[in-house]
C-alpha cells in the first residue's frame, strides 16, 4: 500500500471515530443505546459519502460500499422471500403442523392439496443446479412463462390496446364534440387551460401524435413522399416524448440527491432542523 493511500485511510478512520463519539454524545438524551445509534448514523453517512466519491473517481471506498450494498440486498431479498413467500403464502395452506412450527395461523381450505404443486415445481426449478437433471427445470419454467403470458394477455390488450384506441376517439373540432361554427369559436376565444382552443389543440396533438407515431413504426413501406413526412413528424413526437422523459428523470435523480443531502445535513451534521 502506498503512503498516500495509508494517509487517506487513516484520515477517514479518524473522522469516522470522531463523528461516532460526537454523535453518541449528541444522542444521549434521545436514545438509551446512544453510542450504537451514533455508530449507525455515522456508518450511513460514511456509505453515502463513499458512493458519492465515485463522482471524483473510482476508489476503494466506493467499491466497498457497492459490494456491501449488493451483498446486503441479495441476502435481504432472500430472507424476506423465504419468510413472505414460502412461510407467508405457502406454509399456511400446506400443513397444520408446519404452520404451528412457524407460529402462523393455518388456513383451512377444501383444495389445499393443490398447493403441493408449487412445491414440486419449485424443487424442479432447483434442478437447474444439476447438469444431468437440468432439463427438469424447463417444465416449471414453461408453466411460469405460459401462465404469465396468459394473465398479462387480457390485461395488456384491454388496458394498453383496446382502451387506448378508444381513448383516441376525440373531437378535433370543438372541445366536447360540439362545434358551434367559426363565429362562435372566435367570439368565445380564450387561452385558459380549460378553454375550447387549448382543449382542441391538445386533442390535435394526441391525434396527430398517435397517427404519425404509428406511421413511423410502419415497416412495410418506404418512408418517402407524404408518408415520409408523416414519419418525420412521428420521430419528432417520439423525440419530444423522450426529452420529457429525460427531464422527468433529471427531476427524479435530483430528488434522490436532495434526500441524501438532507440526511447528511439534518441527521448526521445537524446543521438544519
Amino acid at each position: 500500500m502506498r503512503k498516500s493511500s495509508l494517509m487517506v485511510l487513516a484520515t477517514v478512520a479518524t473522522l469516522f471515530i470522531v463523528s461516532w463519539i460526537f454523535k453518541g454524545i449528541a444522542l444521549e438524551d434521545i436514545y438509551e443505546s446512544n453510542y450504537l445509534q451514533g455508530f449507525l448514523l455515522t456508518f450511513s453517512a460514511f456509505l453515502t459519502l463513499s458512493i458519492m466519491s465515485f463522482l471524483y473517481k473510482d476508489n476503494p471506498f466506493y467499491k466497498f460500499s457497492e459490494h456491501l450494498f449488493v451483498g446486503v440486498s441479495a441476502a435481504y431479498a432472500m430472507v424476506v422471500g423465504f419468510w413472505t413467500t414460502i412461510v407467508g403464502n405457502l406454509v399456511p395452506r400446506l400443513s397444520e403442523s408446519l404452520s404451528n412450527f412457524f407460529q402462523i395461523p393455518y388456513q383451512e381450505g377444501t383444495y389445499n392439496f393443490f398447493y403441493y404443486l408449487p412445491v414440486i415445481f419449485g424443487l424442479m426449478l432447483l434442478m437447474r443446479l444439476s447438469k444431468k437433471h437440468g432439463w427438469m427445470s424447463r417444465i416449471p419454467l414453461a408453466f411460469i412463462i405460459g401462465t404469465t403470458a396468459g394473465l398479462n394477455f387480457i390485461g395488456y390488450l384491454r388496458s394498453d390496446f383496446t382502451n387506448q384506441i378508444a381513448a383516441t376517439f376525440i373531437p378535433l373540432l370543438g372541445a366536447a364534440g360540439e362545434w358551434k361554427g367559426i363565429g362562435d369559436f372566435f367570439s368565445n376565444l380564450s387561452l385558459s387551460a380549460g378553454g375550447q382552443l387549448v382543449m382542441m389543440l391538445s386533442n390535435w396533438v394526441i391525434f396527430l401524435g398517435v397517427f404519425c407515431g404509428l406511421i413511423y413504426f410502419f415497416f412495410s413501406r418506404e418512408h418517402t413522399g407524404l408518408f415520409g413526412k408523416a414519419s418525420r413528424v412521428g420521430i419528432w413526437i417520439l423525440m419530444i416524448t423522450f426529452g420529457a422523459s429525460f427531464g422527468y428523470t433529471v427531476m427524479g435523480r435530483i430528488s434522490l440527491l436532495v434526500g441524501r443531502i438532507t440526511f447528511l445535513f439534518k441527521d448526521w451534521l445537524g446543521i438544519i432542523s
Binding site: 384506441i165 376517439f169 364534440g177
Partner: peptide
C-alpha cells in the same frame, strides 16, 4: 393500418358525438 383506420373513424364519430360515438366506443369496451 387497421388502428389508423379505426382512429380516423373514431375521430369522425367523436365530432358527430351523441349516440353514434357511444355505439362506436361500445365496440371497444372490455
Amino acid at each position: 393500418a387497421a388502428i389508423i383506420v379505426l382512429m380516423i373513424i373514431g375521430v369522425v364519430t367523436a365530432n358527430i358525438g351523441g349516440e353514434t360515438l357511444e355505439n362506436f366506443r361500445e365496440l371497444f369496451k372490455v
